[in-house]
Design a protein around this nucleic acid. Sequence first.
RNA 1: GCCGCUAUAGUGUAAGUGGUUAACACGCAGGCCUCUCACGCCUGAGAUUACGGGUUCGAGCCCCGUUAGCGGUACCA
Length: 503
Amino acid sequence: MTDTVRVRFAPSPTGYLHLGGARTALFNWLFARQHKGTFILRIEDTDIERSSDAMVQGILEGMHWLGLDPDEGPFFQSSFVEQHRAAARRLIEAGRAYYDFTPKQPPRDRTVKEQIPDRTRAQALIGKERNPYRDLPLEEAARRIEAGEPAAIRLKVPEEGVSRFEDLVYGTQERDYSDIEDLVLIRSDGHPLYNLSVVVDDIEMRITHVIRGQDHLTNTHKQVLIYEALGVALPQFAHLPLIFAPGREKLSKRKHGEVVSVTTYRDRGFVSDALVNFLALLGWSPGSDKEIMTRQELIEKFSLEGVHKAAAIFNFNESKEDSFPQDARDWTDPKALWMNGEYIRSMPIEELTSMVAKEFKKAGLWSDGYETDKREWFAQTVDLLRARYRAITDFSALGRPYFTDDFEYEEAAVKKNLKDERLKELLPGLAERLASIDEFTHDAAEAVLRNYAEENGVKAGLLINAARTALTGQSVGPGMFDIMIALGQKRTVERLRQAVALL
RNA sequence: GCCGCUAUAGUGUAAGUGGUUAACACGCAGGCCUCUCACGCCUGAGAUUACGGGUUCGAGCCCCGUUAGCGGUACCA
């Protein structure tokens, strides 16, 4: 069983789980499931200052909601630093790495990224100078270390040749050794650095496929070098295209805020299967026209070959970015919203009602009767509403009038449907007629209303639309007589009588 | 700066080894349904396949160049 697939998702806990990370986790998970392999979660927390426990919790929470619980882990990279140091020592002994006694550069005001051009320009001026400590005899280095002199450990990158590896998505990757610096493995304060840590951990965890964001593509060469120096066979690499915001820029927690956080989708009424389905299609295609897929179908159809190379734009409404989260309707990618609605209207009703139940408990709309004597009614009403909702939260917000008498009348609706003077007389009259029905059914209610309209010489539509607003406070909704049945005779009559006050 | 990756309607993606009207989904517009909205159904607009060369009878697919975007380039991850 040596070739059992083992993959990992290795986020750094510098923020909540965002869509990009979620997509990476999902692809790893799909790959593992498809191959009956193991999905591992490893938190890359070696940068202690930027890591926090709350962030780790956030990531776990997001993954759990998405149904991507790891088979192993979470492991914390920080707990393996001894292994990392040991690996570095082995490389020193093998002559594949060396101690660098160059004093550490003090941090500057500008960000490191901004300094890079300067650095290379300076280097160009002096010519590609080799690190003076690269060939320092080990005995002398050991002596200086013994004396307490601080030193970083750098990898000895070969001077000539090319690094090469096969990427399952991007194909053959080559990079000249001369373009790779002798990277630092261990800081002079003994702190192991990322490239060393990942490699050591991936070896330790017997990772067979490294599936991660494309932002790691060029650095993979450095890792390949470390694998080789360590004398360990390479895993397979597969890099995933990045996900951009509408402006073609990388998704960022800082800049794009809550719209990119997975938990936002949970809190705003997304069905996790729908989000998973949507995310799966961001950068991957099953090769067929079928886009709505269950988890099982995704697992079966997923393949690294179907992964796209170009970055995908997550098309959320950027113009409304600042006002987030006020925009209740079109706050995120329209296709994601559509897909969520698709799930809401096509999933088994029992599944839907249990999600709505959870939402109602949170919103204070829950009644225990919905699980007992009114169970049937609850399911029917949810079913009646689902075709026009796109989020679970719509049931508690837009659907409120169907479940409680404590609801608001929308001003625009009142203005539109209750402005006709004749309604002052007609509505109470209609209420009495409806009250006198023995068996309050859809057809009976309809017959009463239409007759009443005819008797009074008004169009049925006038009464129907007025009644909708009188009963729900809204101008849109299900068919009028379905609403009446959902509300029941008593509440229908009551609300119709009370509506006079609005005229 | 240097190195690398990418480029198909507004967005997500299709288009076996080059083969003719570039397909599907979302979105958008119009229509049908109807008491409203949504769903559903129908129709439509929207692409000189980033640009320029080349190979070929034939290029979205192959080659070269250009441009743009992005990523990396750190004693960050």
